[in-house]
Each structure stands twice: as C-alpha cells, then as structure tokens.
C-alpha cells in the first residue's frame, strides 16, 4: 500500500478550484479473474482494493487521484496519478524515488506529461504512445509506465456498477 505523500500540493496543481475531497475504498477482489486478464499478470494482494481520492468543486467531481509503488532500477518509485472523471490520465507525479540523478532527470515532469490524456488502452498499446527514454532509464521508465497502466485498469474496473465502495477510515484516508 502506498501513501499519498503531498495531497494539498497535488490537488492545487491538478485540480485548482477544488473545494473538498474524500476517499473511497473500492473492493476489487470479486473481479480478480478479469483483472488478471487485463493486467496480464496475477493481481497483487494490494490490488484487491483501490483507494480512490475524489476531488470535488461543490457537487461537481473534478477528478480522482490514486497512488502506487513500482519497482525501479535503484529502489521503489512511488507514483501519484490523477484521473479525469472519464478515466483519462490527468497527471502523473513521482512522489519519491531512489534513482540516481541522471535517471531521475530523464524521468522528470516533461516525460511524465506524456501520460496526460492517456487511457489504459493507449498504454496497453505499448511504448509507442509514450516517448522512449535512454537505455539507462529504461527499466525504471518501463516500471512507471506499467504502474500507470495498472492503475488505469484498476480505476476503470473500480468504476463499474456492482463494485463495492466504502468510505475510507479517517486514518487510512491520509495514508493511501
């Protein structure tokens, strides 16, 4: 489970004008077979539930934010991904990473901006939709791409009718 490190800054950046937010837990354990098929691998234990932070302006849903942790070349990379209400990626931010400076520089905001507007289908189409990165950054770049794609799929599945939704406990809401 990956915490959302800096919610206030992220919300200000991605959803200026928002007035409030809440956090929902969406239980995905009931759709594991389909999830496995779409992800192309067995879902991890953490993927049985998705913590979705919903951002509102009054009663209008501006978007959602979810987080994930992926295996980078030199350590874990934590991502915060913002979604439009229709499920397209609105923004991606690396919350933390241990990558050496040259690799971290490659995977900066300019490269992360290429995820904007993408859907799970776009990202499943392969690297062609996202600019290539130098070979030394490829492992981490691929991990980030796979992480965003997985989140897109999870989020898509989580919006289906019949998926169990629960408000997150107050303490957990800040952690996920």
């Amino acid at each position: 489970m990956c915490p959302w490190r800096n919610p206030s800054a992220d919300v200000a950046l991605w959803f200026p004008g928002s007035t409030r937010s809440d956090t929902e837990v969406r239980i995905l354990s009931g759709v594991r077979p389909e999830l496995a098929q779409r992800l192309g691998r067995q879902p991890t234990a953490g993927e049985n539930a998705l913590y979705v932070h919903r951002i509102w302006r009054g009663t209008e849903l501006l978007g959602e934010v979810a987080t994930t942790r992926v295996k980078g070349e030199s350590g874990a990379v934590e991502l915060a991904v913002a979604f439009e209400p229709d499920g397209r990626v609105h923004g991606v931010r690396v919350q933390r990473s241990r990558e050496p400076e040259p690799i971290a520089n490659v995977l900066q905001n300019s490269w992360l901006a290429s995820f904007q507007g993408k859907t799970a289908t776009d990202l499943s189409a392969g690297a062609s939709t996202i600019p290539a990165v130098p070979p030394e950054a490829r492992t981490t770049g691929t991990a980030i791409m796979e992480g965003v794609r997985s989140l897109c799929i999870l989020r898509e599945m989580a919006t289906r009718p019949g998926i169990l939704r629960r408000p997150a406990p107050e303490a957990a809401a800040h952690l996920h």
Binding site: V70, G75, A76, R98, P100
Partner: peptide
C-alpha cells in the same frame, strides 16, 4: 518490502550518492 528489493537488485541512496 518498502523498497521492493530482492538479492541482486541495486539500491541507491541519492543523499549519499552511492549505489
């Protein structure tokens, strides 16, 4: 577990500039 590391993996410390 937090760093998603296993034997053989690299672990970099940006603060120490050491892998």
């Amino acid at each position: 577990l937090i760093e998603l590391r296993a034997p053989g993996d690299a672990l970099h410390s940006p603060e120490l500039r050491q892998t």
